[in-house]
Design a protein around this nucleic acid. Structure first.
Lengths: 155, 155
DNA sequence: TGTGAAAAGGCGCAAAC
DNA sequence: GTTTGCGCCTTTTCACA
């Protein structure tokens, strides 16, 4: 199903995950390959799902989304029998960018964006805490961003 | 400098942050606008920095990056006088996808990806913990991913 | 601001080497 | 993997409402 990646493929991915506007021709040039095989490699990696999609990254500050909060969620023992319900709700919240199930004290770690404290508090109180079986929610507020990237390390 | 966003702009952004392969013409059609003004809006939002860039999102699992770890870092009192050094180092680590300065107990929250526990442990021991002034590092391992998106909520 | 049209060039894609 | 090529589509810019 999925061909192992050559170092050429890795170079291509490195470029594409930094700038998806690059055309196959431009990439071909940078990796010193001719156009067609380069195009075919890109295409194959898309089919294989190595490249999931191309997206525009927006600037949260310029959209008034100045606030990032990490929330640790703990469900009640009872709620743990019905994770699907909670998870489905989470996926539906646009404010939640990430949700991970965690090993350790809390069940979930959420990354939430909001305009400001008010907006966040409303989201927490009116939505998150309204979910049945949510026992604890600890919010950790991010103050500034040192690094933010979607680029994965490809050795 | 930055024109406020109309609801039309928001629709365009919504589409673009979901799929950056859409051409101006396709977007125009979806938002029921003709091609030229749609193109102009997109262009303007790029200039304004509302659209930061377009990138390819890769599948971490398929690249063997099965592990996500959140790390809380606490610096020594002394180290807090020289944050820039620490932060510059962090930005340089490909394994670190995000780094936030936090209000509260820890100074930083890092999101780190790795192939497996071994890989992560090496990164922690040989790199993170080698940084001067790192007093504590608490690792929280993510087990599975319920949600992961780069799409910001645009009301 | 929006509309419609139009030029030019690039790009995806495939075929032949 | 390479070079070539065709045709479409996209971007970009007009003049005009």
């Amino acid at each position: 199903m999925q061909t192992p990646l050559s170092s050429l493929d890795r170079k291509i991915l490195l470029l594409l995950q930094h700038n998806a506007d690059l055309s196959a021709a431009e990439i071909a040039e940078k990796v010193e390959l001719s156009q067609s095989p380069c195009w075919r490699r890109i295409h194959r990696m898309q089919e294989d799902g190595v490249i999931e999609r191309k997206v525009a990254l927006l600037n949260p500050k310029k959209l008034g989304l100045g606030m990032t909060v990490f929330v640790n969620i703990k469900l009640s023992a009872h709620g743990r029998n019905n994770l699907a319900e909670f998870e489905a709700a989470i996926v539906g919240y646009a404010e939640v960018l990430e949700c991970h199930t965690m090993a350790g004290e809390s069940d979930y770690l959420l990354k939430v964006v909001a305009k400001d404290i008010d907006h966040y508090e409303r989201f927490l109180r009116d939505h998150l805490l309204q979910r049945p079986h949510v026992q604890e929610a600890h919010s950790h507020i991010a103050m500034s961003e040192v690094k933010r990237t979607t680029e994965l390390p490809l050795d």
